[in-house]
Amino acid sequence: MKKQKIYIVVIIGLVTMLLVAVMFAQFKTIEETDITGIETARETELRTMLSSWKEKYEETAQRLTETQNTIDEYKRTIASNEESSEILDQELEQTNLLLGKTDVVGNGVIVTLTDNDVQTISADDLLVLVNELRLAGAEAISINDKRIVNMSEIVAVGDSILVNTERVTSPYVVKAIGDQTYLFSALSLKNSGFIDTHTSNGETVELVQQNNITIPAYSSSRELMSLNYAKEVEEE
């Protein structure tokens, strides 16, 4: 009887131990498991997750193809834009050259007018010279490194001469780039040319041909080419 009782007690103790051990292991597992983690999710949860991800993937794939299509379109536009922008660049360069917004270099002539005891150089003389140079096909003109553009003025104010609203003084170095021989011959025509007529007046005028003349860009306090009043006529 006594042996039987010990037997029962030991078995019940072992069973209790087993039950409590399994329960605590379960508690620990439940407590430490991250329920939101993929590894611990139940099969049904995984299935719903998988299907939703698949949907998302399909959506994203569709969006990807759409985006790639748009990218292709953009690329095509860019290619055509590049062509047009190259043309535009060229036009801009030419326009800048024409307007005098860039430094230019080339062959041409240099006319130096100096005040002497007999005659002082007047603004009219410079105007006439610039006019004749233009007639002879000068592409870029400067007076004492002041670029003559289509809005430049050469005007006498009191005793001084203003070019591009800045004072210039003797000696006046007029540089012109163009057809060298044509410019030279146009200015140095016998009797009627600029040099002859003005030297005969007693003015000191020198004309030289020179290669690689550098004429600087227009630079003035007045802003270049800002038209406030003249507007383009709108075509219908």
């Binding site: 019940i12 072992l14 131990m17 409590v20 051990a21 605590f24």
Partner: peptide, 15 residues
């Protein structure tokens, strides 16, 4: 006593 010991040992094993 057996149940108590079983509980304690079981808890230790389970943890």
């Amino acid at each position: 006593i057996a149940i108590l010991i079983g509980c304690i040992v079981g808890a230790l094993i389970g943890v």
